[in-house]
Design a protein around this nucleic acid. Sequence first.
DNA 1: TCGTTCACG
DNA 2: ACGTACGTGAACGAT
Length: 404
Amino acid sequence: MYDIEMPLVLGLDCMERAGVLVDRMTLADIHISFEAELNRLSASIYEKVGMTFNILSPKQIGQVLFDKLQLPSGRKNSSGTYSTDSDELTRLIDEHPVVRDILNYRQISKLDSTFVLGLQKVIDPLDGRVHSSFSQVMTNTGRLSSAEPNLQNIPIRSDLGSQIRRAFIAPPGRVLLDADYSQIELRLLAHLSQDENMMNAFLHNEDIHTNTAANIFNVPKEMVQPSMRSAAKTVNFSIVYGISDFGLAQDLGVSFQEAHHYIEHYYAQYPKIRAYLDSLKKMGYDKGYVETMFGRRRVVKELTSPNRNIRNFGERAAMNTPVQGTAADIIKIAMNRVSAGLKKENLDAVLILQVHDELIVECREDQADAASVVLKHAMEGAALLRVPLIAEVSQGLSWYECKT
DNA sequence: TCGTTCACG
DNA sequence: ACGTACGTGAACGAT
């Protein structure tokens, strides 16, 4: 409370007032190309189906695909209507050519309405910048949340979506610095569990996902194929989320038994991780709460529910919160250290964004290298772990450039 | 206002 | 037998 959150109030205030400069022209150009593509896609969809309808209505999509076209229906959602989410539509992609068009339409429409048009609406006419609100009290784990606009979910995973980051820029004479913690949650899992095998992977600077792949597939590291590494990455995430073989099977697209097999192999190779996660569940049941390295507590009331699904949710939350929450504590400490460090060095540089494991600073071009050093050291020195804590810094004239 | 969908870490 | 990854916010349709 006193050491982390209260000092952070001042830093967040600076961050919100500073805002991020947004290039209206870039957004306008993207909007024009998205709109053209949406027009092509809707024409193609209506032609293939033989009628017009609202492509953004899940209800109407369901009627068109499952009643009119008689495609094999799958999951229903809680209101009893056909599910038409991305998983369901992907399943149907070879059944009818309209399905791919619908998926593309959905994606582009989302990007345009939420990010391109949504961002344009909140640009401050006085300074051409967007000023998000960061909340310290919204999340269950200690993370920040961002709203109006949410700058913590700007697209990056798809090529089309990541173009939107070209609109987040530095003003003339200034640059953006972007620093990411490398694998912070898995490093914390290694630290908190004290599992020798996982700690050694980080101490020797090995690729953790390749390492995990070699373990769960029982092959030498040199024999790990990209598909194996990708599956191992998913397994690593699933462990941090509070494992369930069902969830893992669904995400990997493998059988329940196969997913179960991976998890057993995982725990055989990293035995103290199982012990650590079990201890977190026990703490949740015994004390009613779990806590982060810095003493932030989450009461897990779901663990007292007679409903097993709710209780299972509580167990996963008990396993995930100390990891996700400690990462949140550490980046908050880092933000306080960055604010102090930039001020002490008299740099014309300000924090403008935090995205959970990433900090973005805007600074004068001629001070970029000096500010980068401050940023890197403030982040890496925010906590002392049993494994190295690494932050990678890049610079660019736009958020997109920082990521390429 | 609620449910669905989908963007991020 | 049952329903499941953890944490968020915004747009949209339906009511």
